[in-house]
């Protein structure tokens, strides 16, 4: 049932499937009794590209803006400023109307239950999207059944079931089938395996790998689990308080991180070695509030490398090597940070 992807391809393999440029979203809130206006800087100047056929991971802690970024890309909420290009065309422009973009981009959410309509059978849920986009009912149902089979759910047993009659893992398989029903090119997976038990998570990750190959997909994979990201992603972007602080090949970023925050995230993972348990927590305290982010580098109050310059100067996202970029003054020659001066000397 694949693949018209080649017909829809505009710019060829070298053109990124999705370009995110200067994306900003601030949510207004009222603060205190006086009703003083404030904003949550959920996404505050994010740039990245997703190449055709790759899996880009976004990692970060709660409040870092990773899910907001996903919703902005999907057009589920409107961005304040910035550009979103899909295969070279601005999303929502005359060349790529929202409806056409939506048929090519689908999303899978964390909560498998609340993202399905409880009053529709899984077959009807999967067939709904194609029907809306003009596929005749019979054909849409047929497609739903073949997708159910493809995600490992026997259609004769599962097609007529309701979401509450399925386990969490089975429901997430239905959500994945539904996301594929419109033959999308980009699938956004927002913590799609996080709520699953470990043994089920492994099954679903394997399924995602297979589907990516078979349907020629590109994934944006949002997760807080670095192990899973290392397993499934080609490149990874690390977000902190609404900004990307490091981006690069997953193997490089997660093996030899350049940003102190990435390093702290990695060493916060519990040890699996009883003889070598973690002795000191790499970071103290909770992530700060995105309402009033620290000046300069937003990580500086929790950073072991912080120097006065870090609270004064916003670090740009600069290249380390090739595709690996990091926003840290200690890694940028000439930034005024003492560690950076040492870099030049070496």
């Amino acid at each position: 049932m694949t693949t018209v992807a080649d017909i829809r391809d505009r710019g060829g393999p070298a053109q990124p499937l999705l370009t995110v440029d200067g994306l900003i979203k601030h949510f207004p809130i009222k603060k205190g009794l006086g009703g003083k206006k404030a904003v949550v800087r959920a996404v505050d100047g994010v740039d990245f590209e997703i190449l055709k056929g790759e899996t880009l991971g976004i990692v970060g802690e709660s409040g870092c803006g990773k899910s907001t970024t996903a919703k902005l890309i999907m057009g589920l909420i409107a961005h304040d400023s910035g550009n979103l290009l899909f295969d070279g065309e601005t999303i929502g422009s005359r060349a790529l109307p929202m409806r056409q973009f939506r048929a090519q981009t689908q999303m899978v959410f964390q909560d498998s239950y609340s993202s399905l309509n409880p009053r529709m059978t899984v077959e009807a849920s999967i067939a709904f999207g194609p029907q809306v986009h003009g596929i005749p009912t019979r054909q849409a149902i047929e497609r739903a059944r073949s997708l159910l089979a493809r995600v490992g759910l026997e259609p004769t047993r599962f097609a007529a079931r309701y979401p509450h009659e399925l386990s969490g893992g089975q429901r997430q398989r239905v959500n994945i089938a539904r996301a594929l029903a419109l033959e999308p090119r980009l699938v956004v997976l927002d913590e799609a395996v996080s709520a699953l038990d470990k043994s089920v998570e492994a099954q679903v990750l394997n399924l995602l790998l297979d589907l990516k190959q078979d349907f020629n997909l590109t994934y944006l994979f949002i997760s807080h689990d670095l192990n899973v990201v290392r397993f499934i992603c080609d490149r990874v972007a690390v977000m902190y308080l609404g900004q990307v602080v490091e981006i690069g090949p997953a193997d490089t970023v997660l093996a030899s991180p350049s940003h102190p925050y990435t390093a702290a995230l990695l060493s916060s993972m519990p040890s699996l070695d009883p003889d070598n348990r973690t002795q000191v927590a790499p970071l103290a305290g909770d992530p700060p509030n995105p309402i009033d982010p620290p000046s300069g580098c937003r990580f500086h109050p929790r950073c072991t490398l912080a120097e006065p310059v870090c609270s004064a100067k916003v670090p740009p996202l600069d290249t380390v090597v090739d595709l690996h970029r990091v926003a840290c003054l200690a890694r940028q020659p000439g930034s005024g940070h003492s560690a950076a001066n040492a870099l030049v000397a070496a």
Binding site: E61, S62, H224, L226, A264, L265, S268, M269, P270, T278, A281, P282, L283, A284, D286, P287
Partner: peptide, 8 residues
């Protein structure tokens, strides 16, 4: 909890 808080 978040990863950096969990370990604490």
């Amino acid at each position: 909890l978040d990863a950096t808080v969990q370990i604490q």
